[in-house]
Design a protein around this nucleic acid. Structure first.
Lengths: 219, 219
DNA sequence: TTATAAACTTTGATCAATCAAAATAAAAAT
DNA sequence: ATTTTTATTTTGATTGATCAAAGTTTATAA
């Protein structure tokens, strides 16, 4: 029965290690994404190592053990299934669900989770387009191509959006930057740092590279 | 933002004060129903008083303030709505839902609760037959008559069952001791401490007074 | 009416999670 | 090859929730 805090560390370290290509996660990253001081992260990480969730090399970083990875995956599963429930069943806006799921994921039991999964029809992706890990902890590896990797004339499909912030998600919904939508790359101006798209063949949209990089796509 | 612990104290003290007819709740009761040592209860209750949730008279007991009552009612609402959801929507057995709701009630936000209430069709009673407080904190006062208050020949309806324990609830389901069922009192033997009933006009059932007292009824 | 029991409070300690600030090590710049 | 900067660890302290055990009231019984 790990605490919510432990669950958060493992989930967050897993997310970082996926994004950073499976090597060690730096302590700075750990502290940052858990919103604690570096000292707190060090203390916590040492206790996580003692309990076998991860390996810690001082001043190098941390790497989840098999059981740590499993726990992290399980938390990700909880989080994404809950997000799906909040949108699909209760009709919350996708900009509001992250914080809600963040709380609920620590309170829901394996038993209820299983029933929820069944009720939702065993969904494979959450409302942001991120894959939902299976009960056994496997997850299809997502695409790593974003809108900035496209050429002019490319026709692609939005797979997911990588920003859980309210403002961004509200913007994305308004602009139809939603998983599943088809996008055509119309123009690309590196000097102006601007990319122009057409969504659904209708809506025109111009983004800077910073925002374009948040939209994961598939050909 | 009261902690889960504070929420539990307020909910539990509210429940006790309803059951014990609105006077002060003894510290022993508080400690018992929160499963902590008496010393812990004393410490906690003092801090709850400092925060304005209740009034504490040493060696007399505690009484919720208006805001304490409101908070307690809100927790009861959360708990009972969640129990309803777990049974009605996810199909869990009523013997399993108490512990689950006990965790979830601290994690669900007002916003999600409102959506859930709407989704469930604004239910007025939970699966055990207990009334669900409204958003404003009002609750119809339940009947206080149980099966032991009946006379032979009485025809009554089960309003609720007052035991959240797994074993009892499994027994009750098997014997059709379920809110809404009609019961006829067939025999009453004070010496043997046994009461005999007929449920739905079909099933015969004999209970001791201890168990019969757990079944709240209405004429 | 004293002795005993029951209910309650105090005291001193622990545990998990946290922070601020000082100390140290490694990396980058000069 | 030093110095400076940045990243990380240590140290000492705090907060909320808890317990065991000792002390104090109040109630009950003898």
């Amino acid at each position: 029965m790990p605490s919510s805090t432990v669950e958060n560390y493992l989930k967050q370290i897993l997310i970082e290690s996926i994004q950073a290509g499976s090597s060690e996660v730096a302590m700075g990253k750990v502290a940052e994404c858990l919103q604690v001081t570096p000292g707190t992260a060090t203390t916590m990480v040492k206790s996580l190592e003692k309990k076998g969730w991860l390996n810690y090399r001082p001043r190098r970083g941390v790497k989840l053990t098999t059981s740590g990875k499993k726990m992290g995956m399980n938390m990700l599963r909880r989080h994404r299934l809950l997000e799906t429930f909040l949108v699909e069943t209760l009709g919350l806006d996708w900009a509001e669900i992250h914080e809600e799921a963040e709380e609920l994921e620590h309170a829901i039991s394996e038993k209820v989770l299983e029933k929820l999964d069944e009720f939702l029809g065993r969904p494979t992706h959450d409302p942001h387009g991120d894959p939902i890990p299976t009960k056994r902890g496997s997850m299809p590896n997502a695409s790593d191509r974003t809108l900035i990797d496209c050429e002019v004339g490319d026709f692609v499909r939005i797979e997911s959006v990588q920003d859980q912030g309210k403002e961004f998600l509200q913007f994305a919904r308004k602009k139809k930057l939603i998983p599943g939508k088809r996008i055509e790359v119309v123009q690309f101006d590196p000097i102006a740092d601007s990319l122009e798209f057409k969504i659904d063949g209708k809506y025109s949209l111009t983004l800077g590279s910073k925002t374009a990089a948040k939209i994961i796509i598939r050909p």
